[in-house]
Design a protein around this nucleic acid. Structure first.
Length: 661
DNA sequence: GGAGTAAGGGCTG
DNA sequence: AAAGCCAGCCCTTACTCC
């Protein structure tokens, strides 16, 4: 069926007789309990129920994008010369041998998957559901369908209204996570008896290393699997399936979904593991090393024999879908609710993060994310809301159907890593380079270094890959805090009136963004360069206060006290009371905070250059702190960097960090 | 030029 | 009328530092 679809999928309009065949969904893929389903009918119904909707239009856009990707890969594949291909085939063969050498047959893995878990739990609590087609979820989305419903083509991740069309007598039961968590706990108690370190992939899936059990009891893996299934049933009343293999990949081959399958079959004609190996040369030439390795491993059936790693949470998020709206008050209200929820979740786990990501889904199903990395760690609702609303503000006006918030880059003390290791690292860093480069070391404030840390404190010897944060709140007395909470934010750019048209580019290709901005900004920079231009007229009011303030920078007094930015603003002149004399950004006077941030940014830029000494050689003594004079003297290269920086929304307002460079 | 970092997008389960 | 939520990982691009 796939092959037939692929051919027709070339052009959505070419198959007018059966247009549904070019609408790719995952709803007809193989899934337990779906044997014998009339796939053609499902495909048609899904198409009929979908066509014309905004969701459908977005799917078509995505589909077109994938087709382009496939075309590009095909073109690259076709361009490969015989010599190149031979080379990459050698690379692939070598890699296959290397991977083969890592094959570990000493382990016995069991992949346990609860059958239609949510639906089965619901049937336990309401036996009248037994034997009737039933789905857990609602009209908009189904989480799980029981086997009776699957026979109609109803399945997880399918909208309820489509499911009901496929199966009019379908019974809907609302989701009840507490119930599923409880039953999941019961199953896990059983798993634990076979492997205390089993890996829970989700509420209803787990990987168990049963090597030891098999050895100790002298039983086969199949016997253990059978016994485990019976025990689970006995203790929960739920059934499960179990797959046995020498590694987790074989116990359950995952990682290749709709899109990847599409690409593999369409570009390379790969649909089996064997073909994956045969066409290894193509895979190695067109994919990254890690991707090619993954595909070759899948072809070889290698992977996932390593002991379970202690996984540290890397992010925490929430998102809510609602009736699409462009009502800004409503959107901010939703954002506030999410901030509160997220903050509460974070506090439950004692998490503090410094990267905040806002996720948006427009009413036309386009997904955007906007992120900012802060100098300080946050977890409070107010902080989350404050920064998130800046990100949202930059996108207005907009009609949304979903808002999400995510916090990542956590402070490490949560995992029980004592503060000492952080200190030690910083100190060892210092001692490793005691030649005054400590200042440089501090430029990595807030940056991550990967480190392997023995987690003895957690009561086991597992060596865990973790991230060590050298943060601004570390207890190192040499690292002082700035109370002004400078952020890496670009919210002010939205007021520039120069971003129109940028958002349209954002999702196409990142390359467009810089060009678009620089093009629009250049006239302004020319004005600055032109001694007769407007920039010249707007020389700075260089007050004695400002001067003395800035001249104190050498002893860090100025910065480390967390001076508010009201003084900095005097460095920037607002032409006609709205246009920045330095870069032309437009900011009405009512945007007090944004103006201060903007001024901070210019100050940081200037001081950064001062510290680096890169451009100071070109400065005229006595004029070092005159912004305009300074800006005229710095290289054009730097100006374009600055503009790019502004445009890529990573404009740094971080005084403290930058000054240490 | 390479490594590291950040941001944005996407795929997968 | 109506297409979820969450987390991890990968890729690409841009930029900075060495």
């Amino acid at each position: 069926m796939e092959e037939e679809e692929e051919k027709k999928g070339e052009s959505a309009s070419s198959d007018g007789a059966r247009p549904w065949q070019s609408y790719h969904t995952v709803y007809t893929n193989a899934k337990a309990g779906m044997e014998g389903v009339d796939k053609e009918k499902v495909q048609r119904v899904v198409y009929e129920m979908s066509k014309g909707s905004k969701y459908f239009e977005n799917e078509e856009r995505k589909e077109a994008f994938i087709r382009q990707k496939i075309e590009r890969m095909r073109a690259r594949s076709a361009k490969l010369t015989a010599a190149e291909l031979a080379h990459y085939q050698t690379v692939a063969d070598k890699r296959i041998l290397e991977l083969e050498a890592t094959r570990d047959l000493s382990k016995v893995w069991l992949h346990v998957d609860m059958d239609a878990f949510y639906a089965a739990v619901e049937t336990l609590s309401d036996p009248s559901l037994k034997g009737r087609p039933m789905a857990v979820g609602g009209m908009s989305m189904i989480s799980t369908a029981n086997y009776e419903a699957r026979r109609f083509g109803v399945r997880a991740a399918m909208p309820g209204f489509i499911a009901r069309k496929l199966c009019p007598e379908l019974v809907f039961v609302p989701v009840d996570f507490e119930k599923y968590t409880y039953y999941s706990g019961l199953t896990r108690k059983v798993f634990q008896r076979y492997d205390p370190n089993f890996i829970a992939a989700s509420l209803d899936e787990a990987y168990l290393d049963i090597t030891e059990v098999c050895k100790e009891r002298g039983v086969s893996a199949g016997e253990v699997a059978e016994e485990l299934r019976n025990t689970v049933f006995g203790e929960t009343g739920l059934t499960c399936s179990a797959g046995v293999a020498a590694n987790r990949l074989l116990a359950k081959i995952g990682g290749i979904g709709k899109v990847t399958e599409h690409i593999l079959t369409d570009v390379f004609g790969i649909s089996t593991c064997e073909e994956m190996l045969q066409k290894g040369g193509y895979l190695c030439s067109l994919f990254s090393r890690s991707s090619a390795d993954f595909f070759l491993s899948v072809g070889l059936g290698i992977g996932g024999t390593d002991p379970p790693q202690m996984r540290l949470r890397k992010s925490i998020s929430n998102e809510r879908t609602f009736q699409a709206t462009d009502n800004e008050a409503l959107l901010y209200q939703k954002l506030d609710e999410l901030a509160e929820l997220l903050s509460s979740d974070m506090q439950k786990e004692g998490l503090h993060g410094r990267t905040l990501t806002l996720k948006l889904k427009t009413s036309s199903f386009e997904v955007r994310t906007r992120a900012l990395t802060l100098q300080n760690y946050i977890s409070s609702r107010d902080d989350i809301y404050k920064h998130a609303s800046k990100l949202l503000k930059a996108e207005l006006p907009i009609s949304l159907r979903l808002i999400g918030l995510r916090v990542s880059q956590f402070k490490e003390d949560k995992v029980g890593a004592p503060s000492d290791p952080t200190q030690k690292t910083l100190l060892s860093f210092m001692s490793a380079d005691a030649s005054g480069n400590f200042i440089k070391g501090q430029s990595s404030l807030g940056s991550e270094t990967s480190n392997t840390l023995s987690m003895n404190d957690l009561g086991d010897d597992i060596s865990v890959e973790t991230h060590e944060m050298i943060d601004s709140e570390s207890e190192n007395p040499l690292v002082q805090n700035d109370a002004s909470d400078p952020t890496r934010s670009c919210t002010w750019i939205e007021f520039a009136g120069k971003t129109e048209g940028m958002h349209e580019h954002v999702n196409d290709s990142t390359m467009d963004k810089t060009d678009a901005f620089i093009e629009k900004s250049d006239p302004k920079s020319h004005q600055l360069e032109n001694p007769n231009g407007r920039g010249q007229d707007s020389s700075l009011p260089h007050t004695s206060e400002t001067s003395s303030c800035l001249n104190q920078k050498d002893n860090d007094h100025y910065l480390l006290q967390g001076e508010t930015s009201s003084r900095h603003e005097e460095q920037v002149l607002w032409i006609n009371d709205y246009e920045c004399s330095l870069c032309g950004i437009e900011l009405p006077s009512s945007f007090v905070e944004e103006r201060q941030e903007h001024a901070d940014f210019h100050l940081a830029e200037r001081l950064q250059k001062e510290e680096s000494g890169m451009d100071s050689r070109t400065l005229i003594a006595g004029k070092r702190y005159h912004s305009l004079a300074y800006l005229r003297l710095v290289s054009g290269r730097h100006r374009s960097r600055l503009k790019a920086k502004i445009n890529t929304r990573s404009a740094s307002h971080c005084l403290r960090t930058d000054i240490f460079r």
